[in-house]
Design a protein around this nucleic acid. Sequence first.
DNA 1: CTGAAAGCGCTAACAC
DNA 2: GTGTTAGCGCTTTCAG
Lengths: 374, 374
Amino acid sequence: MTAAKYPAPRAKGRRTSGRAGIREVAAAAGVSITTVSDALNGKGRLPDTTRRHVRAIADRLGYRPSAAARTLRTGKSGLIGLTVTTYGEEPFTFTEFAYFAEMARAATSAALARGYALVILPAASQHRDFDVWSNVALDGTVVIDPSDHDPVVTELVRQGIPVVSDGQPGGDLPVTAWVDNDHQAAVAGLLDHLAAAGARRIGLLTGTSTDTYTRLSTTAYLNWCERAGQEPVYEAYPAHDPCAGAIAADRLLARPDRPDAVYGLFDPNGTDLLAAARRYGLRVPEDLLLVCCSESTVYAATEPPVTTLSLQPARIGTAVIQLLIDAIEGTEPRGPQCGMMPTELLVRASSQPGARRTERATVAAPRKPPAVER
Amino acid sequence: MTAAKYPAPRAKGRRTSGRAGIREVAAAAGVSITTVSDALNGKGRLPDTTRRHVRAIADRLGYRPSAAARTLRTGKSGLIGLTVTTYGEEPFTFTEFAYFAEMARAATSAALARGYALVILPAASQHRDFDVWSNVALDGTVVIDPSDHDPVVTELVRQGIPVVSDGQPGGDLPVTAWVDNDHQAAVAGLLDHLAAAGARRIGLLTGTSTDTYTRLSTTAYLNWCERAGQEPVYEAYPAHDPCAGAIAADRLLARPDRPDAVYGLFDPNGTDLLAAARRYGLRVPEDLLLVCCSESTVYAATEPPVTTLSLQPARIGTAVIQLLIDAIEGTEPRGPQCGMMPTELLVRASSQPGARRTERATVAAPRKPPAVER
DNA sequence: CTGAAAGCGCTAACAC
DNA sequence: GTGTTAGCGCTTTCAG
């Protein structure tokens, strides 16, 4: 057994594919492949002339380093998974369109600014979904609104891949970090606002699902009612079904103990409640005060404009990505860092019997802003 | 130089990382790594007993094949790029939130069903953006509303990577395929609808940017006006600026030659026009007929409900993915396949002086449905 | 039917 | 300063 069995690799420049490889560039530039790699990655100590020369040749040949090879070698893919827990049939029910779109936009920007890209992945329900997850090399994952015992999260963490969640995880889900609004404070603040505007009996439009957002918000409402000595008045519906929302809004206003103010937890509740109020001949805000949680700008131009609670998804998306990339790149794995982000109540006519002017008020200030924002 | 220089790879089972590799599984199962690979991928002709045995061991060890290694070896990553051309500062201006969200949702589902995942990538404007593009191994790319001479598209096609666009590309952009609505027919149909409802002078709220959608729709409007012998009445504004929309709506209704019907090209135009009409004391639909292009459900519950043109982003997203994956997997590279998808006019009260009932009408039927849908 | 060995294209030690 | 070489973990001929 001699060395003859191991011929110089790529002895005769046999390039099968059309694309230029690092070897072609090295040959054309008259240097070794190491020099090419170093020149292009800004490593090593090469004279600037060599560096420029190699870069020029690489450009001329249209050389693109193979992402797959680099990932295999370095163990870093520059890819971050993005998934949102869903409840319906589809792998993605954007119950809150604007929230998700805005959060994803901000997360994408933030990741990009640090050289990462996001991969949209399904919440794993079926076996097929797991396949896709393991077919992509991820440096970390963002999970929006994780379910209590998400199998994917557990598996990723077991593999040592950082996971940061948007929304405080329930159960004992072992995420690396999480970011959330202080929903309890937000709801309490908003109910106080309605009470100050003259509400005597505040109703709630809530969801039937058990996600953290719905749970915390509803609990906060019930607690507030208890403190205020008000009997709770609420209707719950499956939040992923848009038709159900209109019906639930109608049911709420049709009750014998009809509320004189309503808070809707979901984005479309504002228009649905406005429509329901018209059907019952109720004037907003004179007969009924209205607030809903929404990121949509439509509520600035409805008749009347509707007061909204913004969860500030852009800030959350950015914070989540920063925490995740810190965890990915961090040398010393610090313990879970979590952050409470502020919400913003955009006060409009629907919750102000007198005025017609728009004010801003910030509720639930951040508890650990330095750890999260930069 | 003897073979001693080439020791059996991984001679002493030195696993550095925590995760199990294919070698560990092979050793534990008492077979070779080839057998493990074949057993897990359903290849080769192995007895079912061996196959099951290997699978059991792999499960027990929590073995996950390395996506990076597989990609390097096979040349297929299972990743599809998704990008949307933007005009503002942010890498993603979702001018039409609901459109993009719905299109992306459908595309994600469709890709997933065929074993692919989507990677969100920026329209390349800065040099930094190119880095991210070449740092990820893509099997193909979806481009939403490509600009006329998109450098990324050109580069990808040069590399032999299939590119399918949502929106007919302008210029001579060499995409593999594209899918679009028949915007000309849609606009013409909708203007006919308004005329039939009694409109004498139809105005247009359009954009200042030069993307295909804006261009085709505006042209269709101008052509229709010429055919109908009506003087065009339109206002253009930068569509990515939400405030500008409200102002443009106001301007349009403040003109001395005020239209008695308006079509708004962008999603928020409906609420903005409704608000502007209220300010001028115009009743909808009695004094002003209204239609806007939108995917949002809010227009079903406004006062009055607004007639909308839906571009059916879900169908487009699905079709784009099917064409792209066909191109990726297709053995014989068929020429560019393109598809015109139908739009849907959801007729509501805002364009019907008499009725208050909602009807549906399909406009611009698909030209090549078999090539696109499945 | 099973296994040994040759790389996919790149980066990182380590020679020179 | 620059080049040589050993793999990253997998799939895939090709011998046995």
